[in-house]
Write a protein that binds this DNA or RNA. Structure first.
Lengths: 387, 387
DNA sequence: GCAGATTGTTGTGGCGTACAACATAACCGG
DNA sequence: CCGGTTATGTTGTACGCCACAACAATCTGC
């Protein structure tokens, strides 16, 4: 918590405030629950909640005690006032949303584009949309912004190192958005933020060691949570699961490397054998389940086996307790249930008592926006009472 | 630091004591240096050091100030009194050492064996050797024991899940050693402990995101440090780099999986092409450099390329700032300098400004013993003043 | 030997949590 | 409907820990 800095007394206060606020952010809790999980004294929790309520970060519902003996404990929920702007630039659109604490998307706007946006265009479009959304949210307090970028992003300062599909290179997108909106902004890889969202609110809730793998139209990415913290790496772009090697030779992937997960497991290859032009996630899944022809089954098997090889490497390397599959990977595995786990089992360390729990993602299309909003919220938790 | 527990005021004390003790453990430092790096007040550092000295954990040398203006600051060094027992059972021997704070090996004893030891034999031999070593170290205070096991170990309780070469399965080795010696004991995978040793005292000093890869006679293992903490995984056996997949088909490795790093990169294959029966690390390295015949060069190239594919996967996954190669991997890369980095570069994300620093390990044959001793020492740091 | 600089030492004050005693508000059984 | 039981919020005091300021100690450089 204190890093390698010496701890002062007031840091304890900050830490405990953050603890309470983060816990309430994940799910509302009664004061007595907060007392239990924190191990702090009732009176301390009372003071902490009072201070957070004072700053408009949490509210207390008198409602609560259902059938419990004893004095009922008020339910502490995140306030509706603090609000974050989430931005997700893509090839054909820029999506913007306002998100409240608790990962609640308040309003969302998708602005279609004819061509991939330049950084300046993306910022202009995003800021205009954000202002429209904010105008409709009376009484909200903007605490920051977060950008989910399909590319490699340096987390410390939100610099887009490389976004091949957008054609961006070394773009300080966080600084640009932050300046335009007049707030602090952060940016990170989209799949990494998806990992964070699934970890906090989705299929990875409560898990300390998690790997999230996202299959998108343009490639495969992911995020790693280890020991209850998102793994950033030296410069913040850990989690590029798409470029894990699984074979010699083979196709080249989006960065020109042969035989990687992303070169073998491709949404477009699935659409091709299915004879589809385009499909949303649900359509793709039903099509894969409905079409039992030989070419489709062969392609699905090939892709599942390739995914299994990569996941086995990741499991042996990181020993996660859960793996969450998002994007089209979810549909892919639904088409042939069980096969993925079976192939993984033949390649992972043979410890049958401790199998990895492989699950489908739970959050839907708001995934990236919720994840992007976590960037400013995380900063808020680090220092809940600025000034 | 406080996990998800609420922080109390006295935990600040524990944290700061641990901070000072750990810093001094890594390298002696003057009080003023401690003040600077911790950000704490001079008076606070004074109190902390005094308390640690009181408990016999550190000593203050009056010597210090060379050529500095101002009052000289006493040098704080780890005391010689606290001592840890390190145990490393192998196929043909059990090695035991007494280790002092600062990673200083005080005495070492290698007991050769005719056959791989059963757990009971290993404990008997280790404890007898430990008692001999301790008898020679007057005035020392035994603070705990650590066991480095060539196999998969659950870190929380030091249970050996699987050690194929020793033929062990589900052996509570830490509990056995701890009971026999009458102290707390821990156990972990040998390569993981090697990683920790290199991180604290060797080629990974000061780095926050590190991957250590160890090539041993019986396979390839490793350890991961992310964000300044050793990555344990859900059950503590993360870091099995040997079983990262790199190709289809191929040989089976020690756990029967085909096409993994460990199935391609093998010490025995190098010895074979060199026509050697056995060789210590230095001999192997000189032989590889001296023998420029076609079969040797081809085998070295094959192995380096295989290693590069695995490392590229790891780099894309974890974005470390440094990779440390130990065991015979160090000799392997010395034979053809540059090639490893070149092949890695073709397969890793193209971010030329932030290349990974690939280095050879610095610690020699004491590596595993120093790492094993870190297990009890780490526990000591977590609570420097028990009772 | 003196000025300047740096660091150890000591005493006071502020901050944050624990603890205990008391107050409050539900459920429960008659 | 009412007192007993139970769990929780509230309040005032105590304790631990660190920051700060003033003073003491010890080195360098001239």
């Amino acid at each position: 918590m204190f890093g390698d800095q010496g701890g002062r007394n007031d840091l304890v206060r900050r830490h405990n405030l953050a603890l309470v606020l983060r816990r309430v952010h994940v799910a509302p809790a009664t004061r007595s629950e907060l007392t239990r999980v924190s191990g702090l004294n009732r009176s301390t929790i009372g003071a902490l909640v009072a201070e957070l309520a004072d700053r408009g970060l949490v509210v207390e519902d008198e409602a609560a005690g259902a059938g419990q003996v004893g004095r009922p404990s008020p339910l502490v929920r995140p306030s509706d006032a603090p609000i974050a702007v989430a931005v997700n630039p893509e090839l054909d659109a820029v999506t913007v949303a306002t998100v409240r604490l608790g990962g609640r998307v308040l309003a969302k706007e998708r602005v279609p584009l004819d061509a991939p946006p330049t950084p300046e265009e993306a910022v202009t479009v995003a800021v205009a949309a954000a202002r429209r959304l904010l105008a409709r949210s009376g009484g909200a307090r903007l605490v920051g912004a977060g950008v989910a970028v399909p590319g490699v992003v340096r987390r410390v300062d939100g610099l887009v190192r490389l976004a091949p599909h957008l054609g961006w290179r070394d773009v300080p997108i966080a600084a640009m958005v932050g300046e335009a909106l007049g707030v602090q902004a952060g940016a990170a890889n989209d799949a990494g933020l998806g990992a964070q969202a699934e970890w906090v609110f989705g299929a990875g809730r409560g898990v300390e060691d998690l790997v999230y793998v996202h299959g998108g139209a343009s490639g495969v990415g992911g995020g790693i949570v280890s020991g209850g913290a998102l793994v950033g790496g030296a410069t913040g772009h850990a989690g590029e699961l798409g470029h894990v090697g699984i074979r010699r030779g083979g196709r080249a992937d989006t960065i020109g490397v042969r035989g990687t997960l992303e070169s073998e497991v491709r949404r477009s290859a699935l659409l091709e054998v299915l004879g589809l032009e385009r499909a949303d996630p649900d359509e793709l899944e039903s099509a894969l389940i409905a079409d039992r022809s030989r070419p489709v089954r062969d392609e699905v098997r090939r892709q599942i086996d390739a995914l299994a090889v990569a996941l086995a490497s990741v499991i042996n390397l990181l020993n996660p307790s859960r793996i969450v599959l998002g994007g089209f990977l979810s549909a892919l595995t639904a088409a042939t249930p069980g096969r993925l786990a079976d192939v993984v089992a033949t390649r992972a360390l043979p410890l049958p008592d401790e199998p990895v729990d492989i699950r489908r993602a739970e959050l839907g299309s708001d995934l990236l926006l919720i994840g992007a909003a976590e960037l400013p919220f995380t900063r808020l938790f680090a220092d809940p009472l600025p000034a």
